[in-house]
Design a protein around this nucleic acid. Structure first.
Lengths: 234, 234
DNA sequence: GTCTATATACGGATAGAC
DNA sequence: GTCTATCCGTATATAGAC
């Protein structure tokens, strides 16, 4: 498989707002007082967009239902037809991000078999996902603490699973001789930190006109050109 | 200068809770209704420790003054003798972290002149600071959004200044031939992400029994052993 | 399905005693 | 310096009309 770029990724994977909302509706059939899919999807789009915009600016706790009402143009009564409590809106956003990430990552990885290509694919896919859904990823990271214990555990476990995936991919690439050996667990940790910085400091990278493809190249460059051995350092 | 370890760092730099509180008192003379230094320091210790513990667990906005009262054992009335409003407590914590970071980083860097040593010193010092003051750094990162615009700008500018410092250190080390050339600005960005992950995911690293010295070595290893050139990749 | 109006509770901040 | 008691605004959530 040739290296996929972000624009190709976007053509192949539908992460449109409408599609995300349709999935939420499909995954939680009885969760809404409103029953007509088109209506639910249309209003969820407004709610999610507004909630992510406000919460990512001043924090979910500081966002009031009145803020959300004003930003969506919906009344408070109408909002409560789409989630039983404010806290459930938070869980919905977290859950959808996690579900999409896992699904897409698995799909994309299944298409590559060469170890180095799999590693590159995973890095790029993670960055592309967080680019296409930046507000969702930022929100999930910053608000993970506020989840109820059960949801919190699931999010944490998802994070660790992703990290273990990267650890395995690094190890397999090294065993195939494609990259140099190293401390795979610690390297996976550092790699994850770099991937997360892409969506956590999105405004900074955007201001510098760095594209997600350039960022992916820089991260992969750093990983692939690590060559331990007798150094030139004193 | 020989490589400094975390235990040596802690012997030389006093980042005890009492010392931090003494500095806050010294830096804001008229800010407290209570005037006796010993009393202010003793109570600030309790307040800061409790506030960081609660806020880092569930977020500053979700921490109520009643929570803080219970955790400190002080009454609400007493608390308000140490800050005019909840928001000012937030600013105080942010401000003190920023002030300490800038001061210590400058002090330590002034002691090294060799470019590679300066780079290593900066990386280690940043990690050691965030290890010694982990709750402060975590808090500052997660709650930066909630600051009033003026304070917010100062924090942001401090972050960018630190990143520019790392960019310069990388460039100078490369010009001295100590490390390979690369995109210095982007590399500084990635470096910063790795440094921040140390305190953002502190529980994870601690659970894996990674010491801050091991982490520093891994980060420096990755930077110093980057060797672009004809690769073994297909 | 959506709106207006409101019940109910909780949080920040202060007054005034000791 | 610290405590108790309380004021008052504001937040979530709901009831019931349309």
């Amino acid at each position: 498989m040739a290296a996929m770029s972000y624009s190709e990724f976007k053509k192949m994977v539908d992460l449109s707002k409408a599609e995300l909302c349709r999935e939420v509706f499909a995954r939680h059939p009885g969760a809404f007082r409103v029953k007509k899919e088109a209506t639910v999807v249309r209003n969820l789009e407004r709610i999610f967009a507004a909630a992510l915009r406000i919460a990512n600016q001043k924090g979910f706790a500081a966002m009031t239902m009145r803020d959300l009402s004003a930003e969506t143009g919906m009344s408070m009564g109408a909002l409560y037809a789409y989630f039983p409590a404010k806290e459930d809106l938070l869980a919905m956003l977290q859950d959808q991000r996690r579900s999409v990430t896992r699904r897409i990552l698995e799909q994309r990885l299944a298409q590559a078999s060469d170890p180095l290509e799999r590693l590159r694919c995973a890095v790029r896919t993670h960055l592309y996902l967080s680019e296409a859904m930046q507000p969702w990823f930022f929100f999930a990271y910053m608000e993970a603490r506020r989840l109820p214990p059960a949801e919190r555990r699931r999010t944490l476990e998802g994070e660790l699973a992703t990290e273990r995936l990267f650890e395995d991919l690094l190890r397999q690439a090294a065993e195939a001789g494609a990259i140099a050996a190293r401390d795979f667990r610690l390297s996976a940790s550092l790699l994850k930190a770099m991937l997360q910085d892409w969506y956590l400091k999105h405004w900074k990278h955007a201001g510098r006109k760095i594209t997600v493809d350039q960022y992916a190249a820089a991260v992969l460059d750093q990983i692939e050109h690590y060559r331990p051995g007798p150094g030139q350092n004193g």
